[in-house]
């Protein structure tokens, strides 16, 4: 099984230096546990993030050097078409770059691969050419999917924590460098949006009992049985749980 881990050009939220995001470290560890050949892939002006990913369990990596302003998606598509991996693993959002989380979807569309979002576990499937994927849903629910390869998955923060960074592994790993001339590639589309320095906007306050019908019931000294009835009725009426057999 051939796995490619996508590494973004993320920056550390405080120091602004190139850094691997936690999600991508989780992706690297997950891929390393999965076995087979695992390679990292990064398109961007520097390979610092890729070096860090090697320390989290990737043996080898490809670095497509492109200029800062160039859209990395076409370069990634070309590379992935040639490499034809079985599984592509990415983080669900970038950090410190565009932060839209659109790159995996653009790749999946161009490569005609199914994409599974918010994945917390990947293991080889029972049949050949399949993989079993665990997806995180809301309220702690999970969905287990068996998917035909090839597939692209994005990692959810609840995936197993990344294996610790090993300096020796980062030194030992090899990075294959390829310089891609920007002339052949389309530059990123001009954005219809204006960019300006960030201004923090507070979130809306969560109000106590918002969305509730409003009436408050206070029962003073009910019998325990009556109290129990009322509590269960409250839970069922508000759709929290069902307790009938």
């Amino acid at each position: 099984m051939k796995t490619v881990v996508l590494v973004s050009g993320a920056r550390h939220p405080v120091s602004r230096r190139p850094a691997l995001t936690r999600l991508e470290a989780q992706a690297a560890s997950l891929a390393a546990k999965l076995g087979g050949t695992v390679r990292g892939l990064h398109a961007g002006p520097s390979d610092d993030q890729l070096r860090e990913a090697l320390g989290h369990g990737l043996g080898e990596a490809d670095w497509l050097e492109i200029e800062d302003r160039v859209d990395p998606v076409p370069a990634l598509i070309d590379h992935l078409k040639a490499a034809a991996p079985d599984i592509v693993i990415a983080g669900r959002r970038g950090e410190g770059t565009g932060d839209t989380g659109l790159v995996p979807y653009a790749l999946a569309e161009a490569l005609d691969m199914p994409i599974i979002a918010d994945v917390v576990g990947v293991s080889p499937g029972a049949g050949s050419g399949t993989v079993s994927i665990e997806q995180a849903l809301k309220k702690g629910a999970r969905r287990r999917l068996v998917v035909q390869l090839p597939v692209l998955v994005t990692i959810h923060p609840l995936a197993p924590p990344p294996s610790p960074f090993a300096f020796a592994a980062a030194r030992r790993g090899t990075i294959r460098h390829e310089r891609i001339e920007a002339t052949g590639l389309p530059t990123a589309k001009p954005s219809p949006f204006v960019e300006r320095p960030y201004r923090a906007r507070p979130k809306m306050m969560r109000q106590a009992g918002a969305g509730q019908a409003g009436e408050k019931a206070v029962l003073v000294g009910p019998t325990p049985e009556e109290a129990a009835e009322r509590i269960l009725a409250f839970l069922e009426d508000n759709g929290i749980r069902r307790y009938s057999a």
Binding site: R11, P13, T97, G98, F193, V194, E195, P197, Y198, R199
Partner: peptide
């Protein structure tokens, strides 16, 4: 917000 909350896109 974009660029890790260093910039914002407006439009």
């Amino acid at each position: 917000a974009t660029k890790g909350r260093m910039a914002e896109e407006v439009g």
